[in-house]
């Protein structure tokens, strides 16, 4: 218990940064992922191709490599400088968006094709068919896999510790420097992650599943 109470500020700063990484990355990943999913079902072959290329390349790269690029490689390009936490957010968003896109695309495929045909038949263009008819129905079947992706994202944020971001994954190293037992610290970190998933993400998932349940 001492490990936790005497280093409370370390834990709070760490998890605060984890929270920031998670929420901001989840937000951008959801938007980018939805756009990419839309591209992958678009009637324009070039859009489909670009979407597929993005998903297949980024999804198949290790997250460490992507974060290493944004933390170490990107600054050398001489473009707009970004701090480590922004770099981590960009990397996590781009990486997670590929999984979001595939989850949403699977949801789009569960919507009967007649829904899209009916939308087109009343004169809705592709984008409006998608946003007004297909996606609202796709999202509800997508909630469970989407939360899988977000839970994975929450845990993936710890990889950013390797690139100078003080988040939950970095707590252990800091504890060791202060002379506290690292293993105890790690167990606390693990416990807090479990609490976050069970206490926050799971109820959120249940909320959305209930909210978007449809009369069938």
């Amino acid at each position: 218990m001492d490990t936790l109470t005497e280093n409370l500020e370390l834990f709070t700063t760490g998890f605060k940064n984890t929270g920031i990484l998670f929420i901001v990355s989840a937000f951008f990943a959801l938007i980018l992922g939805t756009v990419v999913a839309a591209m992958r079902v678009s009637p324009v072959p070039a859009m489909r191709g670009a979407g597929t290329l993005y998903v297949n390349t980024v999804r198949n790269m290790p997250l460490t490599v992507i974060l290493a690029f944004f933390a170490l490689g990107y600054p050398k390009l001489g473009l707009v400088p970004v701090n480590f936490i922004t770099a981590a957010i960009i990397g996590l968003s781009l990486y997670t968006a590929t999984y979001v896109a595939e989850a949403i695309r699977s949801g789009i495929n569960t919507v009967p094709v007649g829904q899209a045909e009916a939308a087109r038949a009343i004169g809705l263009p592709f984008m409006q068919s998608l946003t007004l008819v297909i996606l609202p129905q796709a999202f509800r079947s997508v909630i469970p896999p989407l939360f899988n992706v977000f839970i994975a994202l929450l845990k993936n944020t710890t990889v950013a510790a390797g690139f100078s971001v003080l988040e939950a994954g970095a707590i252990r190293a800091n504890l060791s420097e202060r002379g506290f037992p690292a293993l105890t610290g790690l167990l606390w970190v693990a416990l807090i992650f479990v609490i976050l998933v069970i206490g926050v993400l799971s109820p959120l998932q249940r909320y959305f599943e209930n909210k978007w349940r449809v009369a069938r």
Partner: peptide
């Protein structure tokens, strides 16, 4: 206007 065999009303 188009009317389908399976109605295809927007379910949501």
């Amino acid at each position: 206007g188009m009317v389908f065999q399976s109605f295809n009303l927007f379910a949501h």
